[in-house]
């Protein structure tokens, strides 16, 4: 069998040298993990808006809110009770004539403080506990895991309630209560990650070059778990904020005359029939915080760990 061929310019059949690796030359500078994640996060509109709203709430709660208001969150004024939102009292006043604008932002400050505290505890207790437990393994790990298992056998809000009963309710007690249980989930996640990573080649290589255990964990294992840690932090924060508001709502949290979003919502729920704005305003701020933290958490999860994306 013969195939007919077209006539072509003979020069076309001169041999040429082609670099087989030409196509593999890297087109641009390498993109790092964090930069790559940031690019992905920027595409997530919900997460970006949430981040912006959170920054805004932060600024208003700590700086602008108290600065531009002439009222204090504690001053009672019996002649000006139950004023709806007016040009003087932007969020109205409560049953003691206290300014709701400053009280709501004082409550938001408590929430943000609790969120920050929970995040710090997660890092300094949860990550450290998990890293030690996972890296050392063996009997130490066994004991440390049993402790967590027992702690997890008790609903954490119940632990918090007991703590609030024993000590005087207040922001410090709430901090302790959250500190008692809030970190266990992070510890488990980090431990799992350590166990998964510690026998991988890069960690073995580092150890075989004489690095100390601490150095391996700090320089190799933790950096490789950072994405996971950040994702988890973003879910710890809203649950801590929720825990504080919950305790304050049932009367075990922040005590009068201090304000927390939980106690403001509780007061507002009682005035629902005639003064609903007392419920709406703190509720909106609270839900806004929760939604933004959750959306930002979802966004970070998708950005830092595309495999977990759904």
């Amino acid at each position: 069998m013969e195939t007919r061929h077209r006539e072509l310019d003979p020069r076309l059949f001169e041999s040429v040298e082609i670099d087989a690796y030409e196509g593999e030359r890297i087109a641009g500078p390498p993109v790092g993990f964090w930069k790559d994640s940031w690019v992905r996060l920027k595409k997530n509109r919900g997460a970006l808006i949430s981040l912006a709203v959170l920054v805004l709430v932060f600024i208003v709660a700590f700086v602008i809110g108290p600065l531009i208001s002439t009222h204090s969150p504690y001053d009672q004024n019996m002649t000006q009770r139950y004023l709806g939102p007016t040009s003087d009292y932007w969020f109205g006043t409560d049953k003691f004539g206290r300014d709701m604008w400053t009280r709501v932002w004082a409550g938001a400050r408590v929430s943000l403080y609790i969120g920050l505290l929970a995040a710090l505890l997660d890092i300094f207790v949860g990550v450290v506990y998990g890293a030690v437990s996972g890296y050392l393994g063996g009997r130490v790990d066994d004991v440390m895991q049993r402790i967590i298992e027992i702690l997890n056998g008790i609903p954490s809000l119940i632990i918090a309630i007991l703590a609030m009963i024993v000590f005087n309710p207040g922001i410090i007690t709430i901090s302790i209560a959250i500190g008692l249980t809030g970190w266990t989930f992070m510890a488990r996640i980090v431990r799992g990650r350590m166990i998964q990573l510690k026998d991988q080649e890069f960690a073995l290589a580092s150890r075989s070059l004489g690095a100390s255990g601490f150095r391996v964990v700090w320089k190799h294992l933790i950096p490789n778990s950072l994405g996971l840690i950040v994702i988890n932090l973003m879910f710890t924060i809203p649950s801590a904020i929720f825990a504080e508001a919950f305790l304050s709502f049932i009367g075990l949290g922040i005590q009068v005359p201090e304000a927390s979003l939980g106690s403001l919502i509780s007061d507002g729920a009682g005035e629902l029939r005639f003064h609903p704005y007392l419920l709406w305003l703190p509720s909106i701020v609270f839900c806004l915080l929760m939604i933004c933290f959750n959306l930002l958490g979802d966004g970070l999860r998708d950005a830092l760990d595309p495999k977990m994306r759904k």
Binding site: L8, L12, V16, I18, Y21, G23
Partner: peptide, 27 residues
């Protein structure tokens, strides 16, 4: 040597050209 071409922008001619030791101008 080398690896297969990027199929989001496949080569116009013979796709093996880049890795072929006998590549010619026409390929």
């Amino acid at each position: 040597p080398g690896s297969p071409p990027d199929m989001s922008d496949p080569p116009k001619g013979c796709p093996f050209t880049a890795r072929c030791p006998y590549a010619m101008r026409v390929c």
